[in-house]
Design a protein around this nucleic acid. Sequence first.
RNA 1: GCGGUGGUAGUCUAGUCUGGUCUAGGACAGCGGCCUCCCGAGCCGCUGACCCGGGUUCAAAUCCCGGCCACCGCACCA
Length: 572
Amino acid sequence: MGEVKKIDKFEVLQDLMRRRGFAWQSFEIYGGVGGFYDYGPLGATIKRKIEQKIREAFQREGFFELETPTVTPEEVFIASGHVEKFVDPLVECKKCGSRYRADHLVEEALEIDTEGMSAEHLTKIIEENNIKCPKCEGELGEVWYFNLMFETYIGPYKDKKGYLRPETAQGLFINFKRLNHFARNQLPFGVFQIGKAYRNEISPRQGMIRLREFTQAEAEIFFNPKETEHPHFDDVKDEILRLYPIENQLKGFGEIEITLEEAVKKRYVLNTFFAYYMAMVKRVLLDIGIPEKAIRFRQQLPEERAHYSTDTWDVEIYSERFGWVECVGIAYRGDYDLSRHMKMSGEDLTVMIHYDKPKIVKKLRVSLNMAKVGPKLKKDAKRINERLKEMSEDEVKKIVQSLEETGKAIVEGYELERDDFIIKEVEEKITGEKIVPHVLEPSFGIDRPFYLLLENSLTVDEDGRIYLKIKKDMAPIEVAVLPLVAREPLKDIAYDVFRTLQKAGLIVIYDEKDTIGRRYARYDEIGVPYCVTIDNQTPEDNTVTIRDRDTREQIRVKIEELPQRLKELIFG
RNA sequence: GCGGUGGUAGUCUAGUCUGGUCUAGGACAGCGGCCUCCCGAGCCGCUGACCCGGGUUCAAAUCCCGGCCACCGCACCA
């Protein structure tokens, strides 16, 4: 019974989204293509509002926004690991045509780890171990890799390969040198980008939940791995999050509710730096209008994690239709991306960390007493002297120790005595060190929260009347101005009110068609939080009523106070 | 990709099995008008559809084949 009702609600929403202009599948008139969605007039407005909430939240953290191309040359994704790792090995049964993940078949049959194996290697293993099609026992063909990135070519000749970016992040990493300069060498700093990304999903399903082209809002926060205390952690330490850590998932324990301070103390969360941004993400989702009870943080299992990450928490939003849906990922990317780009490009992507005070380090400097040793070592003397200079502190200490204890030391096959060396203790002034910053990445999907916001806002009462109880400041139309009946002077007054509100910056609609009840229903359905009604009392005293979508209650206000009152009610 | 089920106006649906009376019916929505009304009232009128392509047949929404899309299951989800 309850289940039937839930399915109905999903269908009501699908219907509503198409009928009233929120979102629908793209390319409809040509039959539609899976994994692509168009945002209609109301949907695009809500999407922009979601993006704006995230943008403002990042800006409150002092991050700056970037915009980089979606078309990206191949080298970037060779460096990022996507060319190699963003793939699935597939194999087809020669008899029945069924397709499988080759690595999964091998892992299952032989219980070995196939991580990083080539297609040829997998093919060989399948042949040698006589692994057959699980369905029909038929022979399996060659293993091939399918890369989930969309390929393209840059320019008129097919010699410059490119890909549509599978994440917006790389556009930020490859600009690191300029960004670090912009931040004047001060870690930590954050940058973000809101834009499209593309993944050629093998089989997109579930409507807007898995798209081939989608919008992300990703921030990369570059920090010194030795400084993982967030300066503003106190602001959020008492925030209670619902966590679902790895061990609770593995042991079948449930979720836990815990303050961030406790979560760090009990080592559920790496450090206060990570914890701070978990709180930030939660606040953004609440600000968008996702109910608190529908938000949880689930730590990704090691095998789920992307190739670049060593710890990731997904922020999931509950859907009646799809269960818990991953909407935001907070990934610890370490120095993976910067190190890889440093290697690939040859650029120096380090940051100089200046110490508060220069460190005075006492160091043993050991060199050969060339005058004494020259005749003995001949032309090897110079080479060994160079070698001594390159030695690590430990190697040098060993030699000195040996000299002190036995009076002798063996270097490069020569036995040398104390007098053959010049040993000096020198003071070295070190003003800082070069480090590759580590990266924490909060990465918002936009399309999924969009859908889940609508789903969580949709209410159907027992009469079947639909209300989209979307958070008031997220509504795509903020006010509807309605003359009670389409008659003068009500129409004229109403139209003036409409224009006044438009000029005041509100998103407003004017409507005089149909009965007033029907119009209220029309605007309840698309989530208009307030209807302003011009009635027969208006010509007498210049007052109008404001009707609340969620309570149906009306208050009467003076027309001159209307813009201000509405703004307070909606954006308060 | 595989298997199953399905695709009729903006939405939901009748018709499909058993080909012809289908010039494709209804409801809701939309548009115009009457009514002038505080929560989807009523009346009149209008607009609007057989997923695409091929085939079988005198005749196809209906039968057959291919494609596309959706839903469910398998697989996949870095």
